[in-house]
């Protein structure tokens, strides 16, 4: 009897903890459908979604974020995949050390150090902060994520497959391109989607290396959130929650294949 009570207690606690994790987001999404401007439920409405869709700043931020996530996602996926494959063949201590360091470096430090680099370089080059600097920064921190996902996949990959291909006359490149690469494809897609999300989500590093004309969606949301109450932010947040959920689910599916 006592043991059942204990089990019930544990289950109730777990339910409360999970509610704590989910309730804030659920409330946020619920109130994005509120007809009222205030935090009082006055009925269902898509009003704030319409306002969000018509907001030029949000549209520009979304476009910038998509461009940055797309370009940096492709670049970091290519660079990270090649590096992971090369390190699987034989380790590269300095590079993997660098990548681990980039994972544990606090975001704010990554951001200011890149800002220092860019501003230093701009004294010699006629350039300014903009989309390109954000893309460079995002590639820099995404390579480590991509490499980790691809390396995990390579760990269960059979080395003898490549050896067999080469015994049958394939070149080094041929064995990689025709045998290993197709096997890695789901992992590469998963890593790419992860890089996309990590890039799209970043605020701290982006805000430091973005120029005035390259505001991203998180930067616009941040500015709106600071200004005060607006259910528009809820609507955009709800959109992001759902979009991220879909991409991550897709990525996990692919990783399991």
């Amino acid at each position: 009897m006592r043991s059942t009570w204990r089990n019930h207690g544990a289950a109730i606690y777990a339910a409360c903890a999970l509610a704590f994790l989910h309730a804030p987001l659920a409330i946020l999404i619920l109130f994005s459908f509120n007809a009222s401007r205030f935090t009082v439920w006055e009925g269902f409405s898509l009003r704030w979604y319409r306002v969000a869709l018509e907001d030029p700043q949000l549209a520009e931020g979304l476009l910038n974020s998509l461009v940055i996530a797309g370009v940096s996602g492709v670049l970091s996926t290519v660079i990270g995949t090649l590096a992971a494959y090369a390190m699987w063949r034989r380790g590269a201590r300095v590079l993997s050390g660098m990548l681990y360091l980039s994972l544990v470096t606090p975001e704010i430090v990554t951001g200011v150090s890149l800002l220092a680099l860019f501003e230093g370089a701009f004294r010699f080059l006629q350039l300014r902060l903009g989309l390109h600097t954000v893309i460079i920064a995002h590639v820099a921190f995404s390579i480590a994520y991509v490499t980790i996902v691809i390396s995990a996949r390579l760990r269960s990959y059979d080395r003898t497959l490549e050896e067999a291909a080469m015994d049958l006359g394939a070149s080094e490149w041929g064995a990689f391109a025709r045998v290993t690469l197709p096997n890695l494809a789901p992992g590469i897609a998963a890593a790419g989607l992860l890089a996309l999300v990590v890039s799209f989500d970043d605020y701290v590093i982006t805000s430091l290396v973005a120029g005035v004309d390259s505001q991203t969606l998180p930067m616009v949301i941040y500015a709106m959130a600071r200004r005060g109450v607006s259910p528009v932010v809820n609507a955009v947040s709800a959109f992001i929650v759902v979009a991220f959920g879909v991409v991550i689910l897709l990525s996990e599916r692919l990783q399991r294949r």
Binding site: I79, M87, M98, S102, L114, A116, A137, A140, T147
Partner: peptide, 20 residues
């Protein structure tokens, strides 16, 4: 295959930290 990652992390990860 290692080259792009080495170059990118040397220029955009190691150098900024050295500058700091």
């Amino acid at each position: 295959f290692l080259l792009p990652a080495r170059v990118w992390s040397a220029v955009f990860l190691a150098t900024p930290l050295a500058i700091v």
